[in-house]
Design a binder for these strands. Structure first.
Lengths: 115, 115
DNA sequence: TGACCTCTGTTCATCCATTGAACGCATAGA
DNA sequence: TCTATGCGTTCAATGGATGAACAGAGGTCA
C-alpha cells in the first residue's frame, strides 16, 4: 500500500469514525501500529487532522481525530486521484487478462461497456 | 511483485526468448539484477530451467535458459493460477471503484457482462 | 485517598527483502 | 598475447515495516 493511499484510507476512516484508535486503524487497514502512528502524525503535522482530547468510559487516553477543512479538501483530492488510478489499473488488468487468455487458449468472455 | 508471480514471469520470458540475460530480465520486469539472479537460480535448482552454455559473437559468457518439461508444466500451472487471481483482483477493483464513485457522487458507468 | 488495572499513543531495536556496485571469468577483437 | 566487453555471481548496505515495550491518563474499588 502506497503512502498516498494509506493517507487517503486513514482520512476516509477517520472522517466516518473519528474515535477510532490507532490499533483499530491498523487492524482495519491490515498494517502495523507503528506505520499507522507515523501516518497519523504526518496528517496532524500537515494540518489535515486535529487530535482533540476525548474522554469516555471505554477509552482511557484516546483522541478524537477530527478532519480539518484542509483535511476534507485533501481527502477529496486524494479520493479522485485514487479512483482514477484504480480505473486505470482495472483497464490494465483487463489487457493482461486478455493476453493470458490468448496464451492459454481460453475463450475470452464477452465483457462489454469497456473502452 | 510476489515471488510466485516473478517465477511465472521469468519462465514466461525465458520460454519465448531463452537467450535473455539476467540484466535484460531485470530491466524488463522492473526489478534488480540480484533478485533476478536469485529467482533464476531457484528455477534451475528446482529443475524447471536448465542453463546451457551458449556462445555467439554478442554475448560473452551468456547462457541459454531452456525450460525443461517440468518447467513447461510448472509455467502452465502458474499461468492458470495467475490468471484466476488477476480476474479476482479485477472484480474486487470493480467493487472498490463503485464504492468510491458512490462516495464521490459520480455517475457510475454502465459496465455490462460482469458478474 | 491510594493502589491497581486497563487502554491509549509513542518509540525504536529488529527484521527482512531488495538493491546495485564490485568482482571473477570467458570470449572477441586488436 | 593483451585488452575490452559483457556475462553471472556475490554481498554489504539500504530502507521500510514490524510489534514488543514503555510512559501516561483515566477508571475502579476497597
Amino acid at each position: 500500500m502506497r503512502p498516498e493511499d494509506l493517507r487517503f484510507q486513514v482520512l476516509r476512516h477517520l472522517e466516518q469514525k473519528p474515535d477510532m484508535t490507532q490499533r483499530e486503524l491498523a487492524a482495519t487497514l491490515g498494517i502495523s501500529l507503528g506505520r499507522v502512528n507515523y501516518c497519523v502524525q504526518a496528517l496532524i503535522e500537515r494540518g489535515f487532522v486535529k487530535a482533540a482530547n476525548f474522554r469516555n468510559s471505554r477509552n482511557k487516553r484516546a483522541y478524537l481525530y477530527k478532519l480539518t477543512p484542509n483535511g476534507l479538501t485533501e481527502k477529496a483530492a486524494l479520493a479522485l486521484r485514487f479512483l482514477r488510478r484504480k480505473e486505470q489499473e482495472r483497464q490494465a488488468l483487463l489487457q493482461e487478462i486478455e493476453a493470458l487468455r490468448a496464451e492459454l487458449g481460453e475463450a475470452s468472455s464477452h465483457e462489454q461497456g469497456e473502452q
